[in-house]
């Protein structure tokens, strides 16, 4: 198949795959309630009682299937981009928690005498498991939604997240086993155990099999260079294997100075060109506890790369007449990967790079972009919040007015890639919308989800 024919069939194929995975997900979620409906069924216990019970089953399943959403399956996440799968995981956790809470609340409303079961002397062990599951779930959701406000260290939060998730689902399963009313029948019980077993396999895959596979494909740090204040570029080469192939703009989880089993990995956009693979470059800004140590990484250190992931790539829109790359701060990194790839291919389509930063001296990869501009049909437009005294360029935030001045008149067929802090993405989205850019041409990469 020729390259253009391949591209022509790729988008519909990705959409079809996306729909297929979504349908599969919804079927998986519905499976346990369908299981309850299978004959023979025990006698009904009243509409609200059974409604509450089915909610409990379905919400537990939602939580169990969450393990699939974070298992980083390449085929299942490729159509959407894994950032959005994680975002879906986060929203589902909120919805699932409401459904989980609805289960005991409905039961207590229809039968307030059940509150007596909550007194320590009377609590049967399976009820205790149910209460424990809810406590773990609430801790899980609160620590994820408000990690920064609670000042939880990212690495510690990740370990707590994994433990609490398994505890919340495990205790919910013990609760269901203890009640054992609707899955008491042996065949139903067996089917339920198969379903639960699949979640256990997912946990084992994520926590044991995947790290073991990663440990067999180590990388070596071959260079550590300072790019701008608090910005470092790491260059990695595969150690004894062929490395990964990626699309420009994608990202990977990077583990430095530690075992892949230790869960000390962090997601970073790849800065290098796919043409330069298997050599990989990551340009990283000091933003947190881990990234503040990046500059101290010794040359020769072992690293592990889990990737590539993400749908943020111009290669997904190969027919575009041109690309507009809008970056805030370190959001420049995936843009540079795309520019490098286009330069390596000799692509001369018109490109616009709008880079928003606080100050000129803090602009990351400035020299790299200047060099790339010589090889590309690229217009670079820096926008500064605090410009130097003799600054002639754009000033302030990426408002519709600024974008209007930067973009060409024929702007509705270009593809727009936006990466940066969430408020900037929202501002640009509103700006482009007001300028008549079709939202289907607006592509973002979500990071900083927790």
């Amino acid at each position: 198949m020729s390259k253009s024919a391949d591209h022509a069939t790729r988008t519909p194929r990705l959409i079809a795959q996306g729909v297929l995975w979504l349908v599969l997900y919804i079927l998986l979620i519905m499976l346990p309630v369908a299981l309850l409906l299978l004959p023979p069924r025990p006698q009904g216990s009243g509409f609200w009682y059974d409604f509450s019970l089915a909610l409990g089953f379905a919400a537990t399943t939602m939580m169990g299937v969450q393990f699939a959403l974070t298992a980083r399956f390449h085929h299942a996440t490729a159509p959407y981009g894994i950032d959005i799968v994680y975002s879906f995981h986060r929203h589902l956790a909120v919805v699932g928690t409401i459904l989980v809470l609805a289960h005991p609340i409905i039961l207590i409303v229809i039968n307030p005498a059940l509150l007596h079961l909550l007194q320590p002397r009377h609590v049967p062990s399976h009820m205790l498991a149910g209460i424990g599951s809810i406590v773990c779930l609430l801790a899980l959701v609160a620590s994820s939604l408000w990690r920064k406000q609670l000042r939880l260290h990212y690495d510690g939060w990740r370990i707590a997240h994994a433990v609490l998730a398994v505890a919340a689902v495990g205790l919910a399963l013990l609760h269901i086993e203890g009640v054992s009313y609707y899955i008491g029948e042996p065949r139903k019980h067996a089917l339920w155990l198969v379903l639960v077993g699949s979640w256990l396999l997912l946990v084992l895959r994520t926590r044991l099999v995947k790290p073991w596979l990663l440990s067999r494909w180590p990388y070596r740090v071959v260079a550590v260079e300072r790019d701008a204040p608090e910005v470092w570029t790491l260059t990695l080469e595969p150690d004894g294997h062929r490395g990964i192939e990626f699309e420009a703009g994608q990202f990977a989880w990077l583990t430095l100075a530690g075992s892949p089993f230790a869960m000390h990995e962090h997601p970073f956009s790849i800065a290098s060109s796919p043409v330069a693979a298997p050599r990989l470059q990551f340009t990283i800004k000091e933003l947190g506890d881990f990234t503040r140590t990046i500059g101290n990484t010794p040359v020769g250190a072992i690293a592990y790369v889990d990737g590539p992931y993400g749908a943020f790539s111009m290669d997904r829109y190969p027919e575009a007449p041109g690309y507009v790359l809008i970056a805030g701060g370190i959001g420049i990194v995936p843009m540079v990967s795309m520019l490098r790839a286009l330069a390596d291919r000799g692509d001369q389509r018109p490109l616009w790079l709008i880079g928003a930063n606080s100050r000129l001296e803090r602009v990351a990869l400035r020299d790299v972009v200047s060099t790339l501009a010589l090889r590309l049909n690229l217009r670079v437009i820096p926008v500064l919040e605090e410009p130097p005294a003799n600054w002639q360029g754009e000033v302030g935030y990426l408002t519709a007015d600024v974008l209007n001045r930067c973009l060409p008149a024929q702007r509705d067929r270009l593809e727009y890639f936006v990466c940066g802090p969430t408020p900037m993405i929202h501002l640009v989205e509103h700006g482009l919308y007001s300028l008549g850019v079709p939202m289907a041409r607006f592509h973002t990469e979500l990071f900083d989800l927790v």
């Binding site: 979504l22 009904g44 509409f47 409604f51 959005i84 929203h91 699932g96 459904l99 989205e429 973002t444």
Partner: peptide, 30 residues
Amino acid sequence: MRNRLARWLAWLTGALIVLLAALFAFIQNR
């Protein structure tokens, strides 16, 4: 936009589950 879609899809999934649970309770008690 994708994030909004993910949020709507999550709430839609929740609504679907509520409907399914109600259907189960209805069948069980008719």
